[in-house]
Amino acid sequence: MDLRPGLATRVQLTVTDADTAQSLGSGDVPVLGTPRALALAEAATVALTAGRLPTGSTTVGVRVELDHLLATPVGGSVVAEAVVSEVDGRRLAFVVTLRQGEQVAARIRVDRMIVDREKFVAKAYA
């Protein structure tokens, strides 16, 4: 497993109508919805773990702390930078910063657990 504190990656999103609080049901304003900000943060953490886990393993989200600090309008772009902050056995902690240009749009901590993918899915559907 090649995961260690300090590893980082970035993903980008241009906000569309489908990404807004109005569309997601999390509010009634046409700006990036908090659920979509979280989904982008989690996508960054998943991208960071891709190809770095033991064969047959995946990660699942288990805990989130999110501060949504800036409204991003439709057409605006945000970049999510995920950094591994801690590796403790199967638990991985990430700090994700969403930026709109130079401004911080959100700060998010995401904890994920490494699981055996096949066993996890089988248990969920049992």
Results as ranks from 00 to 15, higher is better:
V96P: 12
A93I: 01
P73C: 04
G101L: 07
G56H: 08
L70S: 00
V74C: 07
G101W: 09
L98R: 03
V87H: 01
V96M: 06
A47Q: 14
R63G: 05
E42C: 11
A44Y: 05
T45W: 13
G56E: 10
T59R: 02
V96L: 04
G101T: 07
L69S: 02
T49W: 04
V78D: 04
E81H: 03
S57Q: 11
S85T: 15
V78Y: 04
L53R: 12
V62D: 04
S57K: 08
A50C: 00
V46W: 10
V95P: 00
E86V: 12
V96I: 09
Q100M: 05
G61M: 04
R63S: 11
E86I: 06
L69K: 06
P73T: 02
A50T: 13
T72C: 10
T59H: 02
V95R: 15
A43P: 04
S85C: 07
G51F: 10
V74W: 09
L98K: 02
G75A: 06
L92Q: 08
V60L: 09
P54A: 14
R90T: 14
L69C: 05
R90N: 13
A93W: 05
V96E: 05
V46K: 07
T59S: 10
V95I: 03
V62A: 10
L53H: 11
S57A: 13
L98H: 03
L69R: 12
G56L: 05
T97W: 09
V83C: 08
E81L: 00
A93Q: 12
V78N: 05
T49N: 13
V46H: 03
A47E: 15
G51E: 14
E42M: 12
E81I: 00
L70P: 00
G89Q: 09
L92G: 12
S57I: 00
E42A: 12
Q100P: 00
L70Q: 02
V84S: 07
A71T: 04
T55M: 05
A43D: 13
L69Q: 11
L53D: 12
V95H: 14
A71P: 08
V83E: 14
